[in-house]
Nucleic acid binder design. Structure first.
Lengths: 333, 333
DNA sequence: CATTTTTAATAAATCGGTTTAGTTATTTAT
DNA sequence: ATAAATAACTAAACCGATTTATTAAAAATG
């Protein structure tokens, strides 16, 4: 347990700490070959490993970034995180992931502890509930990138999907297939969460584009545990939907649960399109048509943006970067 | 960006750094109420936040643990991680999660960088490929807990499922339902990975218990990308399986893919039991019978064990802790 | 009133590195 | 032969906290 320090190495090799430090940082210019070898041996023998904490303190860099995800349960979140981690590993940066569980208070706490831990920057899937903090971070020039969602009244770089287009792709496809009573369902839109709002808007615009009526009972943003009830209501109206667009993966699960309960056959009783990919879309009976996000690209791009900011400490010009959704047609439509 | 330090607060409040430190650590005993208030104000005004890096350096504690998961793609892994994070949050400890991607070299690298980062302990889903390092850590008394897998020739605390029982539950159930040609399929068993080996063994023992023959062609541990081929082979033999036990969730996905390709109806053509829960088991057509692990309990327990070791720095007595699997019968059998 | 104890606070060492400004000794240039 | 340049190092300050030993003043005790 007794850790070996640089001083121990210096002693053993009969040089000063400074020289060992030079060695550790691969600055061999001012060091004889003989010295270099002695240090090498000492490190080997003592099994020395530098204390990164000490280095971080002096250098004011931790080579660590934080990721605060609003809700880790979304498949999209996990994929983006995966991409961020890969990109950071390439750049030799560590990642600490925190899940805010959709609670602004948790998000706030994580932002604060991660800053206290001196992480070099933050990638946040913002809950939207901490505008003051976001602004404070922005003003202080702290490296910050938003993913999946934007926050109004800030100029923080945000990397996200062209959500309206995603809805439009789904609607175009369904209309093309002859469906006319298209419903749109998503998780709660109370909190002004970008993708939900934009996908809903995109849905409405797309319906208008096709000259389809906008029926109140055919779209809803509802909390997950009230969704069954909501669908029950939808299907008890006179205009029963012949197709449903699920605003995200969690919604899809609820819709499938409902279909199973009501013994609705897909796609004959009702067609289904999910925005966001799910693990089982290909192997489900029937396989499910989805609009996918390029989540890996989004994550990679976000990480690159952040690392660039953390490195150069300059603002990058663009503030909102949109990625293109893609329709993958399967048998649920 | 210019960070406020304790010295700044001390200046503003007209006290020494020491006193501010006492304040930060809630040791108000030797401090007048007046001083306390002055410090409070100064902190408020300057918006001071302690630098945890500096604290860690002195205290030799980072209040951070590392989790190195062999393969993050398993549902089980993500659930365990979730539990670990929850437990650690309760104890005000941060978690850094790393994915070794089943590669011992990556695992080694992560162990080393996390140690260099001075994390207070490690929870590892071991790849099994770094015995020397495991032993070194064990010998040095470094807090360490294994999850999901054990490693032979070490006495490192391991928290895992009673895997043999899991297989036995599945077999008992299938035999009870009248299935006789039961196949067992899992991902590669080359690397001696505990759950795969034990589940396979459990499967064989259970067959023997029921006096069923052990047919070579009805069990396999195969790499994921060769699995379709393997199943093709299985189903081209004279004794075609009437039931398949999937050794884990990734295997289940492959089996379902195969069933879809070959238009096999579940459970009439072939019954299915999956060891490990998946997100879609309830909503699949048909819903899938699974043997679940108490992954949340496993994760919580592992975290508790580790935090205890990190705190008290004593060995806990038990080395292998097994949790009970549970059969959840659905319509795939 | 002198002495001890308690209270309230501080100076300085420390953690384990990095970095800057020197210091020798040797070599090269003048 | 002397000055300048270079090679090969090192001492000491520093990062921002914690902690130990110490001090000065006030309060309690005999």
């Amino acid at each position: 347990m007794e850790r070996v320090t640089m001083a121990d190495v210096a002693n053993k090799a009969n040089v000063s700490k400074s020289t060992v430090s030079q060695y550790i940082n691969n600055r061999f210019e001012y060091m004889s070959l003989e010295t270099k070898k002695r240090i090498e041996c000492a490190i080997e023998e003592l099994n020395y490993q530098p204390n990164i904490i000490a280095r971080s303190l002096k250098q004011k860099k931790t080579y660590t970034i934080g990721v605060i995800v609003a809700n880790i349960l979304h498949t999209f979140s996990t994929q983006v995180i995966r991409a961020i981690e890969d990109e950071c590993q390439r750049k030799n940066v560590n990642v600490i992931v925190c899940n805010a569980d959709d609670q602004p208070s948790k998000e706030r706490k994580y932002i604060e502890t991660l800053r206290a831990k001196q992480v070099d920057g933050l990638i946040i899937f913002p809950t939207g509930g901490n505008l003051d903090l976001y602004k404070k971070l922005e003003k202080s020039g702290y490296p910050l990138v938003f993913v999946d969602r934007t926050v109004e009244n800030t100029d923080i770089t945000s990397v996200l999907l062209d959500n309206e287009k995603a809805s439009s792709l789904a609607v175009d496809h369904l209309v093309g297939k002859g469906y006319r009573n298209i419903a749109f369902l998503t998780t709660s839109i109370e909190m002004n969460i970008t993708p939900r709002i934009e996908r809903m808007d995109g849905f409405k615009k797309a319906l208008q584009k096709h000259n389809l009526p906008l029926l109140e009972q055919l779209f809803a943003g509802e909390e997950i545990h009230k969704m069954q009830e909501k669908m029950h209501f939808m299907f008890s109206q006179d205009k029963v939907p012949d197709a449903i667009i699920c605003g995200n993966d969690l919604t899809l699960l609820e819709v499938l649960k409902f279909c199973r309960k009501k013994a609705l056959t897909i796609p004959t009783d009702v067609a289904l399109v999910s925005i966001d990919e799910v693990s089982f879309s290909e192997i489900y009976n029937p396989p499910i048509t989805v609009v996918t996000q390029p989540s890996y690209e989004i994550g990679t791009y976000a990480a690159q943006q952040l690392l660039q900011k953390a490195d150069e400490h300059e603002k990058t010009e663009e503030t909102i970067i949109r990625f293109e959704p893609k329709l993958v047609v399967r048998s649920s439509t």
